[in-house]
Amino acid sequence: MIYKSLVKPLLFQLDAERAHDLTHIFAQKASESRILRSLAKALYNYQSPGLCQNIWGLKFRNPLGLAAGFDKNGHIPEIMEALGFGFVEIGSITGNPSTGNPKPRLFRLPGDHALINRMGLNNDGAKTIVKRLKNKKLSIPLGINIAKTHDPTVMGDRAIRDYVHSFKEAQKIADYITVNISCPNTTEGKTFEDPAALDELLAALAIRNDARVIPTLVKFSSDLTKEQLMELLQVCEDHQIPGYVACNTSSARDNLQTSSDIVKDIGRGGLSGRPIAPKSVRIVRWISEATKGQKPVIGVGGVDSLATALDMMLAGADLLQVYSGLIYEGPGLIKSINRQLVRELKELNIDSIHQLFSVS
């Protein structure tokens, strides 16, 4: 595979954020080129009727989506569609633009197939990003992830107004919106993971009061205990939240093979990738059990193989998202998992991914 044998070794010689930026520059050029999009589609795009689902009134060609954080500013959704993603989630976007935290702020843990980032919600701001996305032509669902502006002075009522501003902007172009209530990469850390604060935020967004509101999901941290999650879920259910995303990155450093000295030198930030998969699967299962499987869940965190994808889906995830796996496995990952899912369906003698949940 060209990515693993040639491209990845070259990129991994660079600082992680520099490599990410170069990848984005190329991806943006590819997004703007009909020829490169067609080439990407021919090489990587794999679809099958058995993978198609209709959720929240949206058609998902396959269950694999691009996780928030990879395309913060909405520059490259077209090439992601060409690569075979079933949907893309842009962001996090915030009310005000932000340059994020000082560099270095993105680190690889190659032995763990993981990343640690403390980017700090760097983005161009909701208004600019939404304006940019208005010119994009996609035939897959577009999600917008919103968070609070990375500014310790934006707290209380100002924080809620900040969310509401991003929410209203996102409604102009999003097929669904994800409310990110935790971000370990900011000074404040947990923003709205207090039940009372979350209740106030969701009341301000007025989701339950307007059936026309675009499907609005809540994204949880991977570090929640079951008791904490149940409290937050109860608040969300009271506000008739139609689905959930599990999970965000982790502030913990569990299940790592990388030496503790290296991890200590890196310092704070959100851990993503393979080591957090067990946490993500567990939280997906807790959500599915608590909602009796009636609310769709997007599983994210360590999806880099068919095995993890199946674990996540059998725990209750209807859709999946990928970020770190794309960096370690390359653009062929989406095609590989989708093809293997179809093979799995055939071995189970079922026609649709819907039926996978009934055999679990």
Rank of each mutant, 00 (worst) to 15 (best):
V359M: 11
S98M: 01
L6P: 00
S48C: 11
N96S: 13
T186Y: 03
H239L: 05
A290Y: 15
C52S: 13
Q171R: 14
Y3N: 05
A309C: 10
S272T: 01
L14R: 08
P49I: 05
K168G: 11
I25K: 15
W56C: 02
A126I: 04
A315I: 04
Q240S: 13
K346Q: 14
E237C: 11
Q234T: 14
I2W: 14
L198V: 03
Q340I: 01
F26Y: 14
K137G: 07
F107D: 07
T225L: 08
T149Q: 06
G111I: 06
I241D: 08
Q321R: 07
S38N: 13
N349H: 15
G330C: 06
R339M: 14
P296M: 09
L36W: 15
A19E: 05
A126H: 03
F192N: 02
Q53H: 09
L201W: 06
R158P: 00
L232A: 09
L14I: 01
L232R: 09
D15K: 09
N338L: 07
H239Q: 10
H150V: 00
G74E: 10
I140S: 08
I129V: 14
K29M: 14
A170Q: 04
F12Y: 12
N248A: 00
D71G: 05
R282Y: 09
E17Y: 02
D210T: 06
A42S: 15
V297N: 07
